[in-house]
Design a protein around this nucleic acid. Structure first.
Lengths: 218, 218
DNA sequence: ATCGCCATTGTTGTATACAATTTGATTGAC
DNA sequence: GTCAATCAAATTGTATACAACAATGGCGAT
């Protein structure tokens, strides 16, 4: 499964947007980007088309493409949907997960704890992501897995923020334990609810942060 | 919100694929389509990029784009996810739906019944679709609404098929009544479960159809 | 001075030309 | 006769040229 040049450019642009390199509402200049990437406008434009479908940029005819960073309301909505998607994954996974995957989950969780102890945030995020991706996969539904991964990726930059709350990491690890226990027990309702609240609280934390920033700005 | 030419072409191609005008695995010829649409290859290619993100076509570098019609397994997975998305919409909508929207739902359902009596399948499908779209909207979560609409549209051509089962339309209308009653009562669990099974059964019917075709082919 | 109109400039959208790669066929050898 | 290799044709990917349109600035009129 090789990947063409235009696709590669789309991925790079996607990364630049997701990591917040471009401000919200900023216009993406075709000429500038073409020069920066050392290509003509054509592949840049083809990449824009893809990004527009993902919702990362908005295309205004004859005006240009503008990066669309979701506002607080849209983010809350996305976290709400993410919580439900993960809940579904958990419900399915509790019935379908393999022993090997359970071990993998346990391993990822253990490495998460190590990363916390070592205060290595990059490691922590990677293992945390791995933990969730395994659950998506073990839902046994490829399409669901893809959709969950898609939204997970979209929310990635905002997930990082909420973990800076005092005590949130500790709480998050305990929730992971509960999720793992429910999956191990084949408790679909338990796994579902544990995952839903685990993700939903991320949105709420984010909301609190937004609100406090809002207050601070006044 | 004006729409450019390339976007329009993308929509037309999407329709052609969704309505099954192109066979699965068929290669889309840039020259042919460019001539048919009376444009150059450039807008066609830009449309391809969009379709590839939606998963309607697959792009193989230096090989071309091929329409990707989901197989039986993938379709079942998609119906499963659709069922869960609608269940979530129903759970939220039961708490958030407005009286006006409840009236709209009742109206759509009534027009559905009329269409059934008149054996007007086009009307039936339109009103049935309206019924579901209202529930998505009344979930109060714009992002969820968009995602639900997206998948609904993707599954549209396959939804039609399963309704040809004997008695299915009658059963479907009764399920609509149950859904409407639960929403009216603010019963989030009831609405959720009614919607889940209502959609899930569509996937199962489709599966039965696939299986029977499989047997017939042997 | 302000409002409106026109021209100029810059940007997007489309077409065409060119390069690179794949596919199919034909030819030759074994 | 079959297989392999090379060449030709077709097709995709990219660059460039051109056309259509929006934005901005200056000029004139009121």
């Amino acid at each position: 499964m090789d990947i063409s040049r235009a696709d590669h450019i789309a991925e790079q642009l996607e990364d630049l947007i997701l990591t917040g390199r471009f401000g919200s509402g900023e216009r993406l200049d075709e000429h500038r980007l073409a020069e920066e990437f050392g290509v003509s406008r054509t592949p840049i434009r083809e990449a824009f088309q893809k990004l527009a479908v993902s919702g990362l940029v908005q295309q205004l005819p004859r005006r240009g493409v503008f990066v669309h960073q979701p506002g607080p309301v849209e983010l809350l909505e996305m976290f709400e949907v993410m919580a439900e998607l993960e809940a579904v994954c958990g419900r399915f996974a509790a019935l379908r997960i393999s022993d090997a995957a359970l071990d993998d989950l346990h391993g990822a969780n253990a490495r998460c704890l190590l990363a916390v102890a070592a205060k290595d945030s990059d490691d922590y995020y990677r293992e945390n992501e791995q933990f969730h991706r395994i659950i998506y996969r073990e839902s046994g539904n490829r399409f669901l897995e893809q959709e969950a991964n898609r939204l997970h990726r979209r929310l990635k930059p905002f997930r990082r923020i909420q973990l800076q709350f005092r005590g949130r990491i500790q709480q998050s690890m305990e929730e992971h334990d509960a999720i793992l226990a429910a999956l191990r027990a084949g408790d679909s309702v338990g796994a579902s609810e544990a995952l839903r609240s685990h993700v939903a609280v991320q949105g709420e934390k984010f909301h609190h942060l937004m609100a406090s920033l809002q207050n601070a700005a006044e």
